[in-house]
Design a binder for these strands. Structure first.
Lengths: 335, 335
DNA sequence: TTGAAAGCGTTACCAC
DNA sequence: GTGGTAACGCTTTCAA
């Protein structure tokens, strides 16, 4: 029952011979619109089922030059936003008959080498859900000639397709919300500094503060999207400035920040400092945090991504599919 | 730059023709121990590099009957233990030249149908990291003739290979620890009731309590491994019994439980109730929770799994590879 | 509608 | 060590 003893599965040729039809017939039985009579198809499929035959996808790939495999490039599975994203994506792809080949990028190492398998396995499309810095060059080498879609990020100076939430709108909504609460002094805590989503949120937030006549008390970079970075950054902000609100570039940062403010600084959230995040991960809904955040339209983003993979999506301006998010007000900005 | 225009990559035959060697030579240049002269190999590899040739893994699979793809069967990406596990696994596999094909099981639907692609894509091995109920039958159908490894679970009455942490030992360590703290009344909160890991922890914990002369105050089932289930269960236990300690079947349950005890019941952890979990997920180390737990030896488990995939592991008794975990004492059981 | 045969891009076996 | 050639299991013309 362990490796080695692969008694090879039955092939189309064998099946055909047993039924007394041609191998082509077997192939056609499995091809949706093929020109084959219902009876023939029925006969073949039932025989196949009882003999345990199923078409070899590898051989099929070789001859059709379509693998029905989508490469998913990932790097930050520890940010809780991503596991859910990947799970949803993988499910969505499965529903349209695509398999998911997972690539975990290791930042230091040679990207090209890590992505080589993307080409060698003939993946039909590549979906990039990694915030990690990726040179457009390595990317287009790896994806050359295939559909490539980035989720939640863009790459400047490349016309790669992106599916994103409206980051700027979300950041402005947060600023407006702080303002409506009467807070006039707000800070921004960044995640991965040069990530496009981070920059968009940052710029829009800061610009909106200015429009509203509010004060930007601090603008610090966590350096990564993690609990620890949020924790550290919150301490830094709270200790060195007098701020009434903090907008963290995403939820996991905010969660770390809340813990730091409450448990280490003894501050009240939202009493002393209002807090908002971005994404709306599950944790944001936990009573302990009850985090105000801007929800990314995850399902819609995945749906659009799957449409792009299958070629059933209308083109978007600048190849950027911008989907609307939603401000979710919870207790970290109550009152 | 989008789909459709796959200008096909160069083939070995073309490359060979351009260099003026045989196609076999090209193949040998890429085969580690092949009988080819260093000069020839060098010449081919450099030409290949400059012409952008790389061997087609699909064709190679067809002829070698090895895909270098491992199927990873998953179902609970929302339990934070799994994303890290999957990431580590995928990295480990990548290092031995294996790709990861991800399968997200949807519990309700037809398992066989969902796993059909495992056979069709000729995966070399299957790693199951799902706690979801899987009939041994569906499993052996899907994995027939290939290496199949389960992580963190076993299937009774099947001699499938498993890589597990010593659940019983961990549960006993928790019981002993509670006892050493002077707690005499303890509860158990289960996750997925019939999951093997859950049962092992449960039985060993309860048995040990008896040996130690302690009282089992409650034995409730959360129903799933989730924050919400832990939250609910903790409330139930705290409201209906007088307990001095709770052992949650895993960390995410415990985290939910702690929040419920503290924020909803106004109890002190560990003052009123000591809490322990299992796994040692990142959250367990957060200052807010600082959860005492039994750490699963994740790296060792992955290492062993990769060895099993590559056939480089010595056999284990009953095909169950039991790796030792470690009790991590933190503040939820301090004092 | 059906069957025969030529690919798809490798690897493996065989001579040389 | 090297080149020719048959698989590998399927899809896709092309005739019938």
């Amino acid at each position: 029952m362990s490796s080695g003893d692969l008694r090879k599965p039955i092939t189309a040729r064998q099946l055909a011979r047993m039924i007394g039809v041609s191998q082509s017939a077997v192939s056609r039985a499995y091809t949706p619109g093929a020109s084959i009579s219902p009876e023939m198809r029925q006969r073949i499929l039932t025989m196949a089922d009882s003999l345990g035959y199923s078409p070899n996808a590898i051989a099929s790939t070789l001859s059709k030059r379509r693998s029905n495999i989508v490469g998913i490039v990932v790097s930050a599975m520890r940010n809780p936003f991503y596991p859910v994203l990947i799970e949803t994506l993988s499910r969505g792809l499965q529903q349209v008959g695509q398999q998911s080949l997972l690539f975990n990028l290791t930042p230091g190492a040679d990207i090209r080498q890590q992505l080589a398998a993307l080409r060698q396995y003939n993946v039909d499309a590549v979906v990039i859900v990694s915030a990690a810095p990726l040179s457009g060059a390595a990317l287009s080498w790896a994806t050359e000639g295939r559909t490539a879609i980035m989720i939640n990020r863009t790459v400047p100076d490349s016309n790669l397709t992106s599916v994103c939430c409206n980051n700027a709108e979300g950041a402005r909504a947060i600023a407006d919300h702080f303002h409506a609460l009467g807070r006039r002094r707000a800070a921004f805590v960044a995640g991965v500094p040069h990530a496009s989503a981070n920059l968009e949120r940052q710029h829009a937030f800061i610009a909106r503060l200015a429009e509203l006549g509010m004060t930007l008390t601090a603008n610090v970079a966590g350096g990564e999207y993690s609990y620890e970075a949020g924790y550290r950054s919150a301490l830094e902000v709270a200790r060195t400035t007098r701020t009434e609100a903090i907008f963290f570039a995403n939820d996991i940062l905010a969660v770390g920040g809340i813990d730091a403010l409450r448990d280490e600084m003894g501050l009240s959230v939202p009493g002393d400092i209002a807090v908002a995040g971005f994404d709306d991960i599950a944790m944001a809904g936990w009573p302990r945090y009850s985090l105000t955040t801007f929800r990314q339209p995850l399902d819609a983003m995945i749906e659009r991504t799957v449409q792009l993979v299958t070629g059933k999506a209308e083109p978007a301006e600048g190849n950027i599919h911008l989907l609307p998010g939603e401000l979710i007000v919870r207790k970290t900005t109550a009152g």
